[in-house]
Write a protein that binds this DNA or RNA. Sequence first.
DNA 1: TAAACACTGAACCATATGGTTCAGTGTTTG
DNA 2: CAAACACTGAACCATATGGTTCAGTGTTTA
Lengths: 118, 118
Amino acid sequence: MVQCLDPPLDLAFAALADATRRGIIDRLGRGHASITSLADTFQMTLTGMKKHIQVLERAGLVVTQKVGRVRTCGLGKRGLEAEAEWIETHRKLFEARFEALDDIISEIEQERSNDSAS
Amino acid sequence: MVQCLDPPLDLAFAALADATRRGIIDRLGRGHASITSLADTFQMTLTGMKKHIQVLERAGLVVTQKVGRVRTCGLGKRGLEAEAEWIETHRKLFEARFEALDDIISEIEQERSNDSAS
DNA sequence: TAAACACTGAACCATATGGTTCAGTGTTTG
DNA sequence: CAAACACTGAACCATATGGTTCAGTGTTTA
């Protein structure tokens, strides 16, 4: 519950901050795939795809196993629990503060005019 | 619903991939704050904090207004809806694939032994 | 066993990040 | 009006990202 520092969150959010990697997760959700087939799907070199997979692996979102010459990728055990929790928790803050948006200025200018009136 | 490309998601997830910025959101959820006070809270130079705020602003997670010499920051209208939706959608994929983790190898080795048997 | 295949690693490149310092600009405030 | 204040912008730095090519290594397969 208490989340001091949280490098896992850093890694996971960073991994999700790329459309290709989100696409990979999407793809792996429909079954595992080799690096070659992923590279083909996303029109990228093998090496480029391997880097993306490494990022996802470091974040715990993807696991891979090499059998023979093929490395097969699948979704990781870690899931997106922690990320979902952080977002849900903070989504409420946004909703609560929703109307504060336009009020920031008027509040402050209120204070200013009070000050100048004193 | 259909999310082709989604640069907003890129920006938001990238913004969340930093503990300091998550801390800023946390802080702004309890009321708006000036850049100076945020810089003080997070023990950082003004310029450094301003950059973080810019990242959050580009992602639409924070809004700022300058009144006089003070720029006040608050949570943005955008919220975390799209991010929550993406994560919730894909969280299910992880759960569904949960047991596939250890099965990847055995499945493939099964195929291999079938092949060698034929 | 030679060729094709799947991956791996090193090196390179352009750009972004996360931070700093320093030198402004514009706003209060004494 | 001068000093202090809050921010802004430019420049710099080290490291990371997202991609490439090229040259391996190890595995199948014909």
